[in-house]
């Protein structure tokens, strides 16, 4: 049975995290150092060590999840622990700082860690939210199947077009070439693409021509060509033309739109990791420098 990563084993790691945080807070509260609380009291060193070990362990998740043969718990369990113990770091490390901040390496390390945690929290949200959206949106269709369906429409369109005349065939080939799927990161994230010109128009082609006959943007498009053919009614093979127009304008437009949204959601689900991972490695570097520096100038 599917179990949310947050409620894994009756939220076992939530309890671990809570215990850790409460222990840290109680210790901080009871601790009465002879100087302002900071990282160099015994409690400061303890919290710092716990924090550093936690960070290394949390980063180990990146290795663990790739190691399919590992028998050290399930990846699902590791992820649950990764999330909760990562959140626990906020308490442990904030207390380690003793609330002393400045323009230095040490606070920089802290800020990096908080950014990593914040990006991770975004990740948890994406991990829980977007799969649901995607199921609601596309059902079982994966991006791959949508692409194949679009390719199939292209294939059939070409077959139909060749039945009409060479000019139509040529137009359809150009149209297929032009309607590239996917794009750069920006286009994926904002569901933009090069085929924008033939999508999102649910109006009947005849009506479009009447509404705006001078629209050069539209005029050059496959759709307009098709619409023109249908409207003129001069072509013998009007049935084939209608079917072609239905394929390219009706079905393909819907599929492309669906695919764009599918890819967009997938991109949303992935984008946070492009912050989380590099920030984590930046944190690892800063943490290394932090630990070396405090003992270098002991």
């Amino acid at each position: 049975m599917h179990q949310s990563v947050l409620s894994f084993r009756r939220s076992r790691y939530l309890w671990w995290c809570s215990t850790l945080c409460i222990a840290a807070i109680v210790a901080y509260w009871m601790h009465e150092p002879a100087m302002p609380p900071n990282g160099s009291t015994w409690l400061g060193y303890t919290l710092g060590t716990v924090g550093a070990v936690l960070i290394l362990w949390l980063m180990w998740f990146g290795i663990r999840k790739r190691n399919y043969r590992s028998r050290m718990g399930t990846v699902h369990g590791w992820l649950s622990a990764h999330i909760y113990l990562g959140l626990g770091l906020i308490t442990v490390v904030t207390l380690h700082t003793g609330f002393q901040f400045g323009w230095n390496l040490h606070s920089f390390t802290y800020v990096l860690m908080m950014l990593v945690i914040a990006s991770g929290m975004v990740g948890v949200y994406c991990y829980l939210h977007f799969p649901r959206v995607m199921t609601e949106d596309s059902g079982e269709s994966t991006a791959d199947s949508l692409i194949r369906q679009i390719q199939e429409i292209d294939r059939q369109a070409l077959i139909l077009a060749s039945e009409i005349d060479p000019e139509t065939h040529d137009k359809v080939i150009k149209s297929i070439r032009r309607s590239a799927i996917g794009g750069n990161a920006w286009q994926l994230l904002f569901a933009r693409g090069k085929t924008r010109r033939i999508e999102g128009l649910n109006l009947a082609p005849e009506q479009l021509i009447q509404d705006d006959p001078d629209n050069t943007d539209l005029r050059g498009s496959t759709m307009m060509f098709m619409a023109g053919n249908i409207a003129s009614g001069h072509l013998d093979k009007s049935d084939a033309t209608r079917r072609l127009s239905d394929l390219l304008i009706g079905q393909k437009t819907v599929l492309v739109k669906q695919l764009r949204r599918n890819l967009q959601i997938q991109a949303f689900m992935d984008i946070w990791l492009y912050f989380h991972v590099p920030l984590s490695f930046a944190l690892l570097a800063a943490l290394t420098a932090h630990i070396i520096s405090v003992f270098f100038y002991w």
């Binding site: 991006a143 996917g182 984590s280």
Partner: peptide, 17 residues
């Protein structure tokens, strides 16, 4: 086909890391 996932774009976790 153009990239359909961020992994295929210029975005990179490894190099930025």
């Amino acid at each position: 086909m153009l990239p359909t996932s961020l992994e295929q774009t210029w975005l990179s976790k490894r190099s930025t890391s």
